[in-house]
């Protein structure tokens, strides 16, 4: 039966049987791998209606144009349900993810996207702030490790003459507590 569809299948099977154990193993793995990928990749339903999961995969990346900060895939309002149906319809018509997103941006403005269209502006500030902070900290380490040594030394020199035994005792007790 299989010969009709795959004329060379017999040859393949004989070759497979002749191959060494390792090659057989490798081939089997390859087949399973290919099969796994084919199964795992979402396939559009043959009748043309995309599944809810396919719709949600795109809706997840969009924000409800009316409700505040609610992703479109979980928004419970009637309006959002219609927007999800719109996505389904567009998918059925063969539109790509990018095209659908573009459609929503054109109609409802860039706030429907979960990230600003110009990503650079938004990422640059935290990175710059982190680098600045790291730099200040690094400079701080350098400064703390050098000049203050002399300063704290001078403080000690000044402090000693005025210190009376009363305060010294108190200080010592307090230090012991810590």
């Amino acid at each position: 039966m299989s010969m009709i569809f795959f004329p060379k299948s017999k040859k393949i099977i004989t070759n497979y049987c002749k191959a060494s154990l390792w090659d057989q193993l490798l081939l089997t793995m390859l087949c399973i791998f290919t099969l796994a990928i084919t199964i795992a990749t979402p396939v559009f339903a043959q009748d043309g209606t995309p599944t809810d999961d396919e719709v949600n995969r795109i809706a997840k990346q969009l924000y409800c144009p009316v409700c505040e900060s609610t992703p479109l895939d979980v928004c419970p309002t009637e309006a959002c349900r219609q927007w999800r149906d719109l996505i389904r319809e567009m998918l059925a018509r063969g539109k790509s993810e990018a095209e659908i997103k573009q459609y929503f941006v054109e109609h409802y403005g860039p706030q429907v996207l979960n990230e600003p269209p110009n990503r650079l502006v938004i990422y640059i500030v935290p990175i710059a702030a982190f680098l600045l902070g790291a730099f200040i900290l690094f400079r701080g380490f350098q400064v703390w490790r050098k000049p203050i040594t002399t300063e704290s030394g001078s403080v000690k020199k000044e402090a000693k003459p005025v210190q009376d035994p009363y305060i010294a005792k108190l200080e010592e007790e307090l230090k012991r507590r810590n």
Partner: peptide, 9 residues
Amino acid sequence: QKVTVGPPF
């Protein structure tokens, strides 16, 4: 321009 900053950022 109104934009949204969502979880990915």
